[in-house]
Design a binder for these strands. Structure first.
Lengths: 204, 204
DNA sequence: GTCTATATTAAGATAGAC
DNA sequence: GTCTATCTTAATATAGAC
């Protein structure tokens, strides 16, 4: 307790390097497709050394998933009443689109997991995630009852915002191929389109 | 050439059983996650017998992908001018939603492939798929120029229709968990929501 | 904490009998 | 066409020296 422990600093640095490398590999290969060799190489460590920091491949993966889910839900948590409900919801969609632009690997990590049936994160989806969605759905329901936004199903509205924004991360290869566009060059067009889409839908 | 060849009938039946089993397994496990053991068992064949019909795991997978992509694009091909452009586009979205309801495994097969960078189907995306999308985008651009639909970016409109409809197949586990709903019980609500979404967007 | 070497499975694919 | 047996490789994980 008297002097600093440099070992801890090294540990933190290596753990971070591993999680960063694991995000890179898991997000493009999925859980089964990723190998510890790939992750170790990307992290600049040997495979046994990697397993010194995490007991198993599964542990790395689940730690990644649950850590990132929290960050992933920040935009939805931030949704609240500022006096302009339509603007609040459109802003939420824009923040989600920003997340897809800035953190596409996180988005693809979740996409891989959910598409394959959420075998390792189902509890967090049916628990905390569902609770948050239900809470924000009640908020939107209230706006609809007050005539502040159009009367649409809040759950399906949230699904559509997730789908349309995450599409630019999860299906990025397809989007770029069809638009003949580099990564992210089309994001301003996407923002304009989605802003129009949800503004017209929600106008009371 | 004189009498029928029962071997051919057996071959066709087994090939079909293998492709059906492979669709089931690949769509939930992804290419790397799926094993020939799983596919063989699901098809009711031994593993060597399976490899008598297809030379490799990769062959099964790519044959599935390219066969199904064709069927998958039928709704978009069917999009044409009937005199009611807004209705035509909404109908397209409804047909796509039907596909997600009726063929969720096909949707997840493609989702797995695209999310992971489309390593085995990229050529068909940047070729035939892009051509079809560009053609239908020109059609919609014409409608917008004639004032028959609102002036929105056709490519991003198509992306949003894909995203919102396929979401109900690809992220089905999450949708069901959040809605506390069984498979497909919410599809009518989804149809109503999406119909409203695109009708309001496109009204000139 | 990090390494080399290795144990242990699992999985794609083949050989060869029937 | 179908099977049993097997080859081969790759991948997770561990042992044990340093």
């Amino acid at each position: 307790m008297n002097i600093e422990r440099p070992r801890t600093r090294i540990q933190k640095k290596n753990r971070q390097a591993i999680l960063e490398a694991a995000l890179e590999v898991f997000s493009t290969e999925g859980f089964r497709g990723a190998t510890l060799d790939q992750i170790a190489q990307a992290a600049g460590l040997s495979k046994p050394n990697l397993l010194y920091y995490f007991p198993s491949k599964e542990t790395i993966y689940t730690e990644l998933l649950s850590t990132l889910l929290d960050k992933w839900l920040d935009p939805l948590r931030a949704l609240h009443d500022t006096g302009d409900p339509v603007g609040d919801i459109v802003d939420y969609a824009m923040r989600k689109l920003q997340m897809s632009r800035d953190y596409p690997r996180e988005s693809r990590l979740f996409a891989n997991e959910i598409v394959q049936g959420a075998p390792r994160i189902f509890d967090q989806i049916s628990g905390p995630l569902k609770d948050l969605v239900d809470e924000k759905s009640r908020l939107m329901r209230g706006w609809a009852n007050d005539g502040k936004i159009a009367d649409v199903d809040p759950h399906h509205l949230i699904f559509s915002i997730w789908a349309t924004t995450q599409h630019y991360a999860d299906f990025n290869v397809q989007v770029c191929a069809i638009l003949d566009s580099d990564d992210g060059a089309h994001m301003d067009d996407a923002a304009a389109f989605l802003s129009t889409l949800y503004t017209r839908l929600l106008a009371p």
